[in-house]
Amino acid sequence: MSIFRDAGHLFRLAGVYLAGTLIFLVVRAVVVPHSFGQYGHYRGAAIAEIADRPLHFAGHQACETCHSDIAQTKAGGMHAHVNCEACHGPLANHAADPSIDPGKPDVATLCVRCHAVSAARPRAFPQVDADQHSGGVPCNTCHQPHSPAIAAGGSK
């Protein structure tokens, strides 16, 4: 009996800690997001939130639904596997609202990005020294970008 009296202050201290723990548990139950732990140790709802972020690139499938003629031209040529937005840039806004003018890419900077000659590039990849090759004449004077090989009697 007297041990309880003389250790009374220790029980009080234990009581304080116990109360703190209980408050923590209550706060925890209220504050932790509901979807936490749904799939693992994280907020499950975060997955859907990230999946909901807006698109900027429409994807070539969307382009081809309307521009099937271009898709056909492309399919037979060297640029068959180059997707539309690789050159035209992100156009999801145009896909959602076709009245938005996507503009035209600038061939002066566009073509050389891939085709400017550099020993760092894979050997088999077609490369030109633009100045030597055309002397400043824009690439699309001779090459049709959607099917760039010069069909009849071209030197290259």
Binding site: S2, D6, H9, R12, L13, V16
Partner: peptide, 15 residues
Amino acid sequence: LTLGSSNVSERALHI
């Protein structure tokens, strides 16, 4: 800080 206990008996201090 005393948590309402002012028991400083010899025995309490021994504990």
